[in-house]
């Protein structure tokens, strides 16, 4: 079975429909599935619910789908650095479910692992706990959080072999790992596809069972939000 598709549009063919739920990897602009986001924008799929830690920044990453009004609801932990997101949220055009970052990661991990809910201390006594079951374990309060299952996961990896076994690079792994497991179908874009046997089986981050379709998205521009450096002190 060939998992490698010629481009993002081909890889998403038959998977997109209005009103669907998508889990998207990435943290800020680091490790975002930008080719797949572009293809969803081009397809014009509407009323999307997207679980993603951030929503990109203005007109970058998922910010593009906000700009084109394709998103009905975001499930996110952080929306700073994105004026259009803030504007649509404050004006009521965009529904936002604020979810603590670790709870979001675990909701997707759990969903992908067949766990429909779990208890966590995160958010106890805050707005996040409103309407949620509270249970006491060993004298401490926990709230029930639901696992997330999505129709589609879109992720960005570094290298994959032809069978879909995939590795990430540095902090570009972030949410790509849990998001990959939460979708009924996961489409991955990578920088390079290599022959089976060329990646060490002990060093695979995401087993190929999770990756149903993939594309090579290179070359990537890889934008940086805050370029911080230090001076080289000359001897």
């Amino acid at each position: 079975m060939n998992k490698l598709y010629p481009d993002a549009a081909a890889a998403l063919d038959g998977l997109l429909r209005d009103g669907m739920t998508i889990c998207a990897g990435g943290f800020g602009l680091c490790g975002i599935p930008e080719r797949l986001i572009d293809a969803i924008q081009a397809a014009g799929t509407k009323d999307l619910t997207i679980a993603s830690n951030n929503a990109g920044i203005d007109n970058e990453g998922l910010g593009k789908l906000l700009r084109s009004r394709q998103v009905k609801k975001m499930i996110s932990s952080y929306v700073g650095e994105n004026k259009e997101f803030e504007r649509q949220y404050l004006s009521g055009e965009l529904e936002v479910e604020f979810c603590p970052q670790g709870t979001l990661a675990e909701r997707c991990r759990a969903g992908g692992a067949g766990i429909p809910g779990f208890y966590t201390k995160t958010g106890v006594g805050t707005q996040v706990a409103e309407g949620k079951e509270v249970k006491v374990f060993d004298g401490e309060e926990y709230i029930l959080e639901r696992g997330i299952r999505a129709d589609l996961s879109i992720i960005k990896g570094w290298k994959a072999d032809e069978s879909g076994n995939l590795i990430f690079r540095k902090t570009a792994r972030n949410f790509n790992q849990p998001m990959a497991t939460a979708g009924r179908v996961c489409v991955a874009e990578v920088e390079e596809v290599v022959p089976v046997g060329s990646l060490d089986p002990d060093c695979i981050h995401l087993p190929g069972i999770y990756v149903k379709r993939m594309i090579v998205g290179a070359p990537y521009a890889k934008k940086i939000e805050f370029r911080t450096t230090r001076e080289r002190v000359s001897a």
Binding site: G28, N53, G102, R109, T171, Q177, F226
Partner: peptide, 25 residues
């Protein structure tokens, strides 16, 4: 500077010999 290597404030950082990477979960 490496765009794949940032901190939680989205600033570029560097790694140390003992550094390790993992997913958000």
């Amino acid at each position: 500077v490496d765009p794949d290597l940032i901190n939680a404030g989205k600033q570029t950082i560097s790694e140390l010999p003992q550094s390790v990477y993992f997913g958000s979960e």
